[in-house]
Amino acid sequence: MDRRIRIVVLVLGILAVVQFFVPHASGRWVHQKLLDWLVILESGALVAGIVALARHEVLQFGASGGRARIYPLLTLVGLGAMIFSGILGPINERSLFGSLYAWLLQPIQATMLSLLVFYMASAAFRSFRLSSAPATILLAAALIVLLGRVPLGEKIVPNISLFSTWIIRVPNVGATRGLWIGIGLAGSATALRVILGIQGPASWKGR
C-alpha cells in the first residue's frame, strides 16, 4: 500500500516538474491535466469538509443543552440559508443569496477584522517596549515609518517621509530578500523531499 502511494507521488511529482521545462504542446497537455486533477481534488475535499462541519455542528447541538444549544444551531442556520438560497435561486447581487452576503456576512467579517486596530493599539501600548537592543531598533523603525507614511507626519518631523521611504526601499528590501531566499530554498528542498517520499503524505504510516 505504502509502496503504491510512493509511486503515485513520485510519478505525479516528476511529471509536474518536467512539464515546467517543456514548452511543447505535450508539456502543456500534461500541465493542464495535472491542474484539472488538483482543482477536482480540492473541490471534492471541500464538499467533504462542509459535510464534516455540518456533522460536527449537529453532534454538538445534540450534546449541549440549554442556552449553549443556540450556537451550533446558528451555524447550521447560516450554512443552510446560504446553501438553499444558492441552490434554489440565482446568485447575483440582487438575489436572496447576494443579500445574505451583503447584509450579514460582509459586515460581520469586515467588522471582525477591523477589531484588530483596537487590539494593535493596545499591544502597541503594552508590549512595544525598549526592553532590548533589537526591540529598540524595531520600535524606532516602526515609529519612523508610522510618521513618514502619512501627510501629517511630515508636518511634525520634516523630511521624515524621505527617511521612511529609504527604510522601506533599502534595509527592508535587503532583509526581506534574505528571508525570501531562505524560504525559497527551504521550500524547494521540502518539495523535493515530498516528491521522493521522505516527507509528506507518502511518508506517513497511516493505519
Binding site: 464538499v47 455542528e57 446558528l74 447550521l76 442556520v77 447560516g78 440559508a81 446560504m82 446553501i83 471582525m112
Partner: peptide, 21 residues
Amino acid sequence: RAVERLGVGLAAGYAFILIVR
C-alpha cells in the same frame, strides 16, 4: 458569540455554493 457563529455558517455556505454551483 451568536453573530460570530452565524457568520461561520454563512461563510462556509457561501464558499460551498460558489465552488459547487
